[in-house]
């Protein structure tokens, strides 16, 4: 049952299902990403949440911020919990043991980049390979935020983190960010996409497509983290705009493992250095001896954009 969302005014008539007085930092993008998912559908939701900022801050005893069935599960196995619930649901339905078998139920898993790119990776891979009917959403803030900012395999090169601090001898993280969207598409999942909270309409469209898709879906959501990216809390949307408009976070989708569509083309592409310049985690890159990292990043972003465009053009 798809909810029709034509414009923002109409979207704002949604009855919120993600409540305030959670304990996420002021300006945290995690909650914007989650709120929109809960608001884009009227279906019942069964949600599994790996530990991380979202889980820890929305279920501080004795409170819950979730107006939906929600489970806190281990760091590694949000995908496993969602697939287990989905398998159980299917079985009960087949045996005629559901109270309201016609009411649609959607299964969703949330995990941070630490939970997704690193620690829950094999569990997610397994759930997608088994073909469960669920949507996995990675809140990608490119760091283990909840435990104080350690690097993950999503942390971009050049970022200063507590385990890869920039200083006299280092420009910060030396490894490149793992391309999780490509990896999940390579599983042959029917739908894989990247979203960003500043482009709410694109995000809602992809969420609705994800929920309507039968089979496993992976969504990578850019989540600007005011605390670890080090920018003032009111700038979350501005920083996200720079992320999508510099193409550091291009917005696109891949269907059935191959058909790639770019869903947002910035009218004015901004230089990567503008995106880096507003975040404390990249401050040291503007020193003379580190400028080559910025040039290198710009080249990598240009190359990726070229690749995405050619793949889209090829239409295969």
């Amino acid at each position: 049952m798809s909810k029709i969302i034509k414009n923002l005014k109409q979207f704002s008539t949604s009855n919120d299902r993600f409540e305030g007085a959670h304990l996420l930092c002021p300006g945290c993008a995690h909650s914007i990403i989650v709120r929109e998912l809960l608001n884009c559908t009227d279906d019942n939701l069964v949600i599994a949440n790996a530990t991380g900022c979202l889980e820890v801050c929305t279920a501080v005893y004795p409170h819950t911020s979730w107006d939906a069935s929600w489970i806190h599960i281990g760091f590694e196995n949000a995908a496993t919990a969602a697939s287990g619930a989905e398998a159980m649901y299917k079985t009960l339905k087949r045996k005629g043991r559901l109270k309201d078998p016609d009411k649609p139920v959607k299964f969703v898993a949330f995990g941070g980049d630490g939970a997704t790119y690193d620690i829950g990776f094999q569990f997610l891979s397994g759930a997608v390979e088994r073909g469960h009917d669920f949507t996995y959403i990675c809140l990608d803030n490119e760091v283990y935020a909840n435990t104080g900012g350690q690097r993950s395999s999503s942390t971009p090169r050049g970022s200063s983190t507590t385990t890869t601090p920039a200083g006299r001898v280092s420009y910060g993280n030396k490894k490149f960010k793992k391309d999780m969207v490509a990896i999940m598409a390579a599983h042959g999942a029917p739908y894989v996409a990247q979203v960003a909270p500043n482009k709410w309409k694109d995000m809602v469209k992809k969420y609705q497509k994800a929920l309507a898709t039968e089979g496993p879906v992976y969504i990578n959501a850019m989540s600007a983290c005011t605390t670890e990216w080090k920018f003032p809390s009111q700038d979350t949307i501005d920083v996200s705009d720079l992320g999508t408009d510099s193409l550091v976070f291009p917005l696109y989708e891949i269907e059935n493992g191959h058909k790639l569509t770019i869903t947002y083309r910035p009218r004015n592409i901004v230089p990567v250095r503008d995106y880096l310049g507003v975040q404390g985690r990249f401050k040291h890159l503007f020193k003379k001896e580190n400028q080559h990292i910025i040039d290198e990043m710009q080249k990598a972003v240009d190359l990726k954009w070229e690749l995405l465009q050619r793949r889209e053009e090829a239409g295969i």
Partner: peptide
């Protein structure tokens, strides 16, 4: 749409105001 704390009260497509119990002042 961008308030992270569900603290903007919108009803019938109108912006009514701020829910000061849930606003963190971001």
């Amino acid at each position: 749409v961008f308030c992270p704390d569900t603290a903007i009260v919108a009803r019938d497509k109108n912006m009514l105001g701020i829910d000061y119990d849930h606003c963190k002042g971001c």
